[in-house]
């Protein structure tokens, strides 16, 4: 099977979030970038497991500048065979999806994996857009997946429960928690990643549909009001009469 995994970079989950240039840009100073957790832990690892079972290749694709290369090498160290970087600052989700779809059209994959969402923009947009652009099924929020002879059985989250579905390849799937377990790259993987192919391709022209104009932080929380552990009557009173939430 030919598998494609969409890899994005995201700020480390402990990063301090603030903005510069009149609140128009994310302040990157001191920020460590990681592979977006959903892409790494769930999408990539499940793709690697499928390859180990049935043979084939795992290619990663990233829309981003050269600064994304360390994150791409990490994906290679975990076990992807080769990587593609579309050399453009990822614009909006549509721009990103368009680039991925164009590459996929030219290269025909059996399954395209995305993460559930990026933890910086949290759009949950790219996967569905790629599927629409390729006119393929989109399985959103898969929590487990088995594939045999091009037939996949997938557990996916739905409103109020889980649905077990069956479909034929090709399709696009977004990976949520449960799909796989995180893999820590070993020394051999890290060494091998240095020489694995990372192909840089030029972007295809595409207009952005949305843009982020400004950012803001939530208003600072007022101080915590402490209530004595023996006095739950007071807490209930505060929740009822002051906060009015119960």
């Amino acid at each position: 099977m030919k598998l494609l995994v969409c890899i994005s970079k995201s700020p480390d989950t402990t990063s301090k979030i603030d903005f510069t240039d009149n609140n128009t840009k994310f302040n990157e100073s001191g920020v460590q970038y990681i592979v977006n957790p959903y892409d790494e832990w769930y999408a990539l690892v499940r793709a690697l497991e499928l390859k180990e079972q049935t043979g084939g290749t795992v290619t990663t694709i990233t829309v981003g500048g050269a600064a994304d290369d360390p994150v791409i090498r990490k994906a290679l160290a975990i076990g992807a065979d080769n990587a593609v970087r579309v050399d453009a600052e990822a614009g909006d989700a549509y721009y990103t999806a368009f680039q991925i779809a164009e590459y996929a059209k030219a290269n025909q994959f059996d399954i395209i994996f995305t993460g559930k969402e990026t933890i910086n923009y949290n759009g949950s947009q790219v996967g569905g857009m790629v599927a629409e652009l390729l006119d393929q099924p989109f399985v959103s929020l898969a929590t487990s997946m088995e594939v045999n002879n091009n037939v996949a059985v997938i557990n996916k989250e739905m409103v109020g429960g889980v649905e077990v579905i069956e479909l034929n390849t090709p399709f696009v799937v977004s990976a949520a928690k449960g799909m796989a377990e995180q893999r820590i790259p070993n020394m051999r993987g890290i060494m091998a990643a240095r020489t694995k192919p990372l192909e840089v391709v030029a972007p295809v022209a595409c207009d952005q549909m949305v843009s982020f104009e400004t950012y803001e932080l939530p208003p600072a929380k007022s101080d915590c009001k402490y209530v004595d552990a023996e006095n739950m009557a007071e807490l209930v009173d505060l929740l009822h009469n002051e906060a009015k939430v119960i």
């Binding site: 979030i17 549509y94 549909m209 104009e213 400004t214 950012y215 932080l217």
Partner: peptide, 30 residues
């Protein structure tokens, strides 16, 4: 164009406030 994760009505200039950075900040999407 998709404004995803909106938390308020569009402003008079048409921008829409959405959640970003897992709820740690908001963005205005045009």
């Amino acid at each position: 164009g998709l404004a995803s994760g909106a938390i308020a009505l569009p402003d008079s200039d048409g921008t829409i406030k959405v959640n970003v950075f897992s709820g740690k900040a908001f963005g205005k999407v045009k």
